[in-house]
Amino acid sequence: MITLHHLEQSRSFRILWALEELNLNYQIQFYRRLATLAAPPELKLVHPLGKAPVLTDGEQSIAESAVILEYLQEQYDTQQQFKPQDHANKQQYRYWMHYAEGSLMPLLVMQLVMTNVPQHVPFLIKPVAKKITAGVKAGFIQPRLKDHVQFLESYLATHDYFAGTFSFADIQMSFPLQALVSRTQGKYPHIQAFIQRIAERPAYLRAQSKEQAL
């Protein structure tokens, strides 16, 4: 039996969604975040880093979203629906599977950290912390995020999906794009259209319903 170790408000929703796209039988082991928003220590019993998602399938225990998606596609996508087979789109598939967490997400995490730092320092140095973190965001993070937004908007202006037709690359890209829209100010019409498009998929809606019921 496949088990998804699913942490609330986390990247593991992508795996829940993929399981629904594949119409697989699976069970969910759900974990709530601590008051600090950290993952609970029980997750370290599943994987030494205590992070989610983790997928167990028989004797196998698999971590990292892209690796899990690749495993599910190779193992269970018998009709090859969720990974392109032509060379050009296969290259795009590989690129976006790595870009999501390798290029875009680190900037969003850095921005979140810089936003939260002033809330966790002694009162007397809050003004200094705010000034330093604002400088990092304005001088380093935001210019780079602007480049990424322009890149993504340009690509999605001419592509409904990231690798031809809908694929697991779109699932992988969903989390950073949703984070981008929710954590930054700005209008991103093509990114927002993509988010709306994937959110209307029946499997996405089923996954969302299952998560809300946990």
Rank of each mutant, 00 (worst) to 15 (best):
I2V: 07
T3P: 08
T3W: 10
L4R: 06
H6G: 01
L7E: 08
Q9G: 05
R11A: 04
R11N: 09
F13M: 10
R14M: 05
L16T: 02
L16K: 08
L19D: 10
E20V: 09
E21C: 03
L24I: 06
F30P: 05
F30G: 08
Y31R: 10
R32M: 03
R32H: 13
R33G: 07
L37C: 01
P41K: 11
E42P: 06
L43A: 10
H47M: 02
H47E: 07
L49S: 11
D57I: 04
I62K: 13
E70P: 00
Y76S: 09
Y76G: 09
D77V: 00
Q81P: 00
N89H: 14
N89D: 12
Q92S: 11
A100C: 07
E101P: 02
Q111W: 04
V113I: 15
V113Q: 08
T115C: 03
N116E: 14
P118T: 00
L124W: 13
I125F: 08
P127W: 06
K131W: 04
T133G: 09
A134H: 11
K137G: 02
K137V: 07
A138K: 15
P143D: 13
P143M: 13
R144L: 12
L145H: 05
K146W: 04
D147Q: 15
D147L: 15
E153Q: 11
E153M: 04
S154H: 11
H159E: 00
F162I: 05
G164Q: 02
D170N: 11
Q172D: 02
F175N: 05
P176G: 06
L177T: 03
L177Y: 03
L177K: 07
Q178G: 14
V181A: 11
S182T: 06
S182D: 12
P189H: 08
P189G: 10
P189M: 09
R197F: 08
I198F: 06
R201H: 10
A203L: 05
R206I: 00
R206L: 13
A207P: 01
Q212P: 02
